[in-house]
C-alpha cells in the first residue's frame, strides 16, 4: 500500500475515465492503491465522471469498502453473521475487544490496529471467521488471536 499521492490519484482517475470505466471502478482502484480515498480527490472525481461532488461523496459513503481516511497499520475484520454467531463469534469478538482495548469499528490510539465487523466471508462451515490484513482466518480461537496480536505489538 502506498501513501496518498495526489499526482498518482489524478492519474488513476484520468485513466479510468478515459477507458470508459465507471466512478466506482476508480474508487476501487484508489482504495486498492492507497487504502482510502482522500477528500482531495472528490472534486477531480466529480469532474471526470460528470457527477456532482455530493454524488461522489454519497457514493463513497454508501460502500463500506470505500474508506475516507487512512486505515490503521493492521486491520482485523471479524465476521458477525449468523453462521459464525452459531459458533460463538460474539464471545470471540468480545475477547478481541478486551485484549485490544478497542471496540468493533474503532482504531487503537497508536494507529496500529482497527477492528471491523464483516458480514460473512464464505467460511461459514468453519467459523468463527475473520480476515487479518487481507488474509483469511477460520476457526478463530484465543490462540490464533494471541498470535495475531503478538505480531502487531512486536
Amino acid at each position: 500500500m502506498h501513501d496518498w499521492n495526489d499526482q498518482h490519484a489524478l492519474q488513476i482517475i484520468a485513466d479510468c475515465a478515459k477507458n470508459g470505466q465507471v466512478l466506482t471502478s476508480a474508487l476501487r482502484q484508489l482504495v486498492d492503491n492507497f487504502g482510502y480515498i482522500d477528500d482531495a480527490s472528490i472534486a477531480p472525481l466529480a469532474k471526470a465522471f460528470l457527477r456532482s461532488k455530493a454524488e461522489v461523496y454519497g457514493t463513497i459513503q454508501y460502500y463500506s469498502d470505500f474508506r475516507d481516511s487512512a486505515p490503521a497499520e493492521h486491520v482485523l475484520r471479524i465476521c458477525q453473521a449468523e453462521s459464525c454467531q452459531a459458533v460463538g463469534s460474539k464471545k470471540i469478538t468480545k475477547l478481541v475487544t478486551t485484549k485490544t482495548g478497542i471496540a468493533l469499528g474503532q482504531t487503537s490510539s497508536d494507529g496500529q490496529i482497527s477492528l471491523e465487523p464483516v458480514y460473512c466471508l464464505g467460511l461459514c462451515a468453519n467459523g468463527p471467521a475473520a480476515e487479518f490484513d487481507g488474509n483469511p482466518v477460520a476457526e478463530l480461537d484465543e490462540a490464533k488471536i494471541d498470535k495475531i496480536l503478538s505480531g502487531i505489538r512486536s
Binding site: 465507471v22 466506482t24 471502478s25 465522471f49 457514493t59 460502500y63 463500506s64 469498502d65 470505500f66
Partner: peptide
C-alpha cells in the same frame, strides 16, 4: 464494495453503473 443489498438485482445494476 461491501454491501449486502447490492446482491438484489436492481441495486446490483446501479452498482455496476458506478
Amino acid at each position: 464494495a461491501g454491501s449486502y443489498v447490492c446482491g438484489e438485482e436492481t441495486a446490483l445494476l446501479e452498482s455496476l453503473e458506478g
